[in-house]
Design a protein around this nucleic acid. Structure first.
Length: 970
RNA sequence: GGACCGUUAGCUCAGUUGGCUAGAGCGUUCGCCUCACACGCGAAAGGUCACUGGUUCAAGUCCAGUACGGUCCACCA
């Protein structure tokens, strides 16, 4: 619910020829609701397609009745506690759509404009040095009608003579003071700062039409004169009451026309000193794309700078991320939640802190129809007609100063905010709580909500037409979705607040730390006695397109997850995304498109059209060359402006191939294993690993190591490590090594069948969070097929994988088996390399002639080396050298492989061994260099130095073995 | 203007308190339709870790600066 939605709905209606103002508020909100329902379905479809484990019975929308109650209750509480106030402030006003915009809805654009230098004559005549005027430099001459001062930097040499004097404002004939203010940039043509180059040293101060001037106005207590109306035209109806005869001619002009007219007026009277071209950045409305107008209007604010809100948000941070709260914030205390909120990665703790240190009160009113309407009724009455207690409360108050008083609208004792709008007119504001809160207030009258509103409206009150900023209701999310404040009114929510608030982690995007995270923390802590809404905040990376641009709807470079699911499947998409989730700030995803007609894949181009939009497609130049024809997948759809057309093609990205292949691998591996487990008998006892084959002890050890690694990674929100760990274990250890190794033995080894079943079962459990669909699908078959348990591996049965327990780890991981396997695999690697080099067919077994040490390893690993390296027989090397054999050096010993080829190729052997010798020599050189360095030997940890010595010894032994082999060739 | 992120193999990226010979996937090259999987199996080639300086026995990793790309904030920082 927000400005974007209203804009989209408005645009849609307009395309049907319907205007918002004509259809009326009620009908418009109904249309917006329809639009929201449509997109809600899309979003819920996406979530379901992606396999989000959400409780769909508790889907919530921030404008649901339950959430609306929370919003109104929260507003009422803040109002009563004096944390909501009303004040005149400059807002970012869009004169076209006539709405105020949030700062983040303003887009800064570089504009090529002018700097005009205007002369304002001194009132009391020239100075002794002849100075008769001051020259102000401005890019917005039309606002001079509202000038109430001229400012100069106190360090400016001219300040001494001029500060305290007055100038006569041309056109308006208003006498305004010259004041000293540090904000003013001093003129310096040599400066690298454009502002100083263009400055005259004198700044016209227009508090009603410029945010900086507003601040200066506050510092010098300057009058605020608003000379514009809501459409941006010059007007005398919004606070301008000294309109001179000359100025009268400007009233009614648009701001653009007024600018030209003011410049002409000055030029005609020789008061325009000069005009220079000037490029500067100007805030534009993201809706209408016109320059925004800083405009004075009445808005509602939340006093987030109050220590109860800002201070509480800061105190929530863990001390090791924020050791000390900043000055002006109460220290952490015994309040629950203090010092308990942690950001991942760490750096975002500083982002959050910096925002709160510099926070300003939050303008929460929006001139929209779509949203929670502000629950306040307002009326203006002459001071004389106000209630006695209001008059006395306002006694001595200044204009615009708001005062909370006891309300007279009901005897509930509720608050009532009053404020002098002018010296003799008072604005009364009454907040009405939601029905459920009203019913619980301790009061003696029995008026219902409707009756109260009737009473107020018959007394001349009208409801504020504005709605609340989206983030006001979003900030209440952890509360409003759990039935707060009155769960007893929603039986299905009873107990939820205590179960899910605080929740363990909030996962969100960094751009939302200020908008949303901050507000949730402030609100939750305020309303629940300090309780945090969540303990951890995980800020994930953002996906950018292949060019490093952020994906966005308006750019059209975003990707619908359903398109990826269509091309690769949900599990593949999830796996790839998890793997991309590193702790950096952003990740790139090259986007391709698939043409629905030809099936061909192409990289879309994004072009900015004359309308300022971007579309994707192969681009063709129009024949006339007077514009770009946009051809969407072969069909020319017209010139440029096709942003609302959903592309006919689907997006895809080769980024997801890896995940698709992995899902396929798991499926096939399971298929294979199930076939081998078919008919397996359940043993009476869990298998004791001491009785198991070496390869079984190894895979269980690797399983346990993997579980431990996954647990660590998950606890630290290191999701890319989770994906990589799973991939490495499942693909390489389970599939490439274990499954291959057990092929010859598993059919006849009941214990191995049990281990295989347990490994398979565990793999599915470990992979389920990342790839839920394929694993859940395989689960029933695997559960049924696994014959038994392995002692020490806890995998209790479960009907549904989603609800199956996570494997627990035995503390004592069999590291020895892992180390032994690594040695064996190194030998396997050598034999395989040899086979590849000689083009030995996979089915062709070779013979390995081994020395004693290697024989022990082969023995210990029980056939693994033979199976994985394609070794048919192992014979002691002492029995003699075969005629045709290739030597290899392993752990300092020489072995021979025969059966590779029929004829010896001595040159190939020499080349290979020489290469090996060179590489060993290089290694040895490195190790010796290190050990020869006294600094290293003396300063590095002893274990590391010893390790280097061992490595050196091993490399030297390998070198000797390789050298012996080379010599043996002759 | 400020803050933050990135720059490592042709491409997309790992590399958490500095420490073994800098890794993965894709792509490339060679050999395989080996009875789970060609979305596969085995092997190989490929990197002066953006640049400059510094700290250290030791720097992809820490510090300072530069260049390029990106994100956010902009009254403030």
């Amino acid at each position: 619910a927000g400005i974007a939605t209203q804009t989209v709905v408005e645009k849609r209606l307009l395309s049907q020829g319907v205007k918002r103002l004509e259809m009326g508020r009620h009908a418009f909100v109904a249309r917006a609701q329809e639009w929201k329902d449509e997109y809600e379905r899309v979003i819920l479809d996406q979530l379901a397609a992606m396999g989000a484990s959400t409780d769909n019975a508790r889907t919530r929308f921030t404008m649901d009745e339950m959430c609306a109650t929370a919003v109104r209750h929260a507003f009422f509480r803040f109002f009563e506690d004096g944390l909501i106030y009303r004040g005149k402030r400059l807002v970012n006003w869009d004169p076209v759509t006539r709405t105020a915009l949030a700062d983040d809805e303003v887009e800064m654009e570089e504009v090529e404009g002018h700097m005009w230098y205007l002369r304002y004559p001194l009132v009391d005549g020239p100075l002794p040095d002849g100075t008769a005027h001051v020259t102000v430099a401005t890019t917005r001459p039309e606002t001079m009608l509202g000038d109430t001062a001229v400012a100069v930097n106190p360090d400016d040499p001219r300040a001494a003579d001029l500060v305290g004097r007055t100038v006569r404002l041309p056109i308006v004939d208003r006498e305004i003071p010259i004041v000293a203010d540090d904000y003013v940039v001093m003129a310096d043509p040599e400066s690298s700062d454009a502002k100083a180059q263009y400055a005259s040293g004198f700044l016209k101060v227009t508090p009603a039409h410029d945010t900086n001037d507003w601040e200066i106005g506050l510092r010098h207590e300057l009058p605020v004169i608003n000379v514009m109306g809501p459409d941006g035209s010059i007007s005398d109806e919004y606070g301008w009451d000294d309109v001179s005869a000359d100025a009268r001619a400007f009233v009614g002009l648009s701001r653009e026309d007024a600018r030209a007219a003011v410049v002409d007026w000055f030029e005609e009277r020789d008061l325009l000193e000069q005009t220079r071209d000037y490029t500067h950045s100007v805030g534009h409305s993201y809706r209408s794309h016109v320059p925004i107008e800083p405009w004075l209007s009445d808005q509602w604010y939340v006093a987030v700078t109050d220590d109860r809100l800002r201070g509480s948000a800061i105190r929530a941070q863990v001390p090791d991320q924020v050791p000390e709260v900043p000055d002006g914030v109460a220290p952490r205390g015994e309040t629950p939640g203090d010092g308990e909120m942690r950001f991942y990665p760490d750096r975002y703790a500083r982002t959050y802190l910096a925002w709160h240190e510099n926070i300003r009160d939050w303008c929460i009113s929006r001139q929209l129809w779509w949203g929670h309407q502000i629950p306040v009724w307002l009326r203006l009455v002459p001071l004389a007609e106000a209630d006695e207690h209001i008059r006395s409360a306002l006694d001595g108050a200044e204009v615009d100063e708001a005062v909370l008083v006891q309300s007279s609208w009901t005897d509930a004792g509720a608050a009532h905010l009053v404020r002098l709008v002018t010296a003799n007119e008072v604005e009364e504001a009454v907040c009405i709580p939601p029905r459920s809160t009203l019913a619980r207030l301790d009061r003696t009258d029995d008026k219902t909500e409707t009756e109260l509103i009737d009473t107020l409206e018959s007394a001349g009150y009208e409801r504020d037409p504005d709605v609340l900023d989206t983030w006001f209701s979003s900030g209440l999310w952890p509360l409003s979705t759990m039935g707060w404040p009155w769960p007893e009114d929603y039986p299905e929510t009873i107990g939820l607040l205590d179960s899910f608030n605080p929740t363990s982690v909030l996962s969100t995007a960094r751009e939302i730390i200020t908008l949303w995270v901050s507000r949730m923390v402030m609100f939750n802590r305020y309303f629940l006695d300090g309780r945090l809404p969540f303990d951890d905040v995980f800020i994930h990376a953002m996906v950018q397109d292949g060019h490093g641009q952020k994906m966005s709807k308006s750019l059209g470079n975003g990707v619908d997850p359903r398109d990826i699911i269509f091309s690769h499947g949900a599990d593949a998409m999830r796996f790839a995304l998890v793997q991309m989730t590193t702790d950096t700030q952003d990740v790139r995803m090259p986007v391709e498109m698939v043409c629905p007609h030809t099936g061909e894949t192409f990289v879309p181009e994004f072009i900015t059209t004359s309308a300022g939009h971007v579309v994707a497609a192969p681009i063709q130049k129009s024949p006339g060359g007077d514009g770009e024809m946009v051809s969407v997948y072969g069909e020319v759809t017209g010139l440029a402006d096709v942003t609302d057309e959903r592309p006919l093609a689907r997006n895809t990205s080769s980024k997801f191939d890896l995940g698709r292949n992995f899902a396929n691998k798991v499926w096939n591996a399971t298929r294979f294993a199930l076939r081998r487990l078919d008919g397996a008998q359940a043993p009476a006892q869990p298998v004791d690993l001491a009785d198991a084959a070496f390869i079984d002890r190894w895979i269980i050890a690797r399983l346990q190591q993997t579980v431990a690694d996954l647990n660590t990674a998950i606890a630290g929100y290191q999701f890319n490590i989770v994906a990589d760990t799973l991939y490495d274990f499942v693909w390489h250890d389970v599939c490439d090594r274990y499954l291959e190794a057990v092929k010859p033995t598993v059919d006849d080894d009941p214990n191995q069948q049990v281990v295989l079943g347990v490994v398979l079962d565990s793999v599915l459990r470990l992979m389920h969070p990342v790839m839920p669909f394929v694993t859940e699908t395989l689960w029933p078959s695997v559960s049924a097929a696994r014959p038994g348990d392995v002692a020490g591996v806890d995998t209790p049965a479960a009907d549904i994988l989603a609800a199956a327990s996570w494997p627990t780890v035995d503390d004592a991981i069999d590291d020895a088996s892992i180390a032994t396997f690594d040695r064996a695999f190194a030998l396997i690697g050598q034999i395989r390399a040899l086979r590849a080099e000689r083009n030995v067919k996979p089915r062709q077994d070779v013979t390995l002639h081994v020395p004693d040490g290697m024989a022990a390893l082969i023995d210990e690993t029980g056939g693994v080396i033979q199976t994985l390296a394609g070794v048919g027989s192992v014979v002691p090397i002492m029995q003699g050298r075969p005629d045709v054999a290739s030597p290899l050096a392993f752990e300092g010993e020489e072995a021979l492989v025969s059966g590779l080829v029929d004829e010896a190729d001595l040159d190939a052997e020499r080349t290979r061994l020489t290469k090996l010798i060179e590489s060993k020599q290089k290694q040895i050189g490195g190790f010796r260099g290190k050990l020869g360095n006294e600094g290293y030997v003396n300063n590095a940890p002893e274990a590391m130095v010893q390790e280097t010595r061992d490595l050196l010894a091993a490399a030297e032994a390998d070198l000797a073995a390789a050298q012996a082999a080379l010599d043996g060739l002759d």
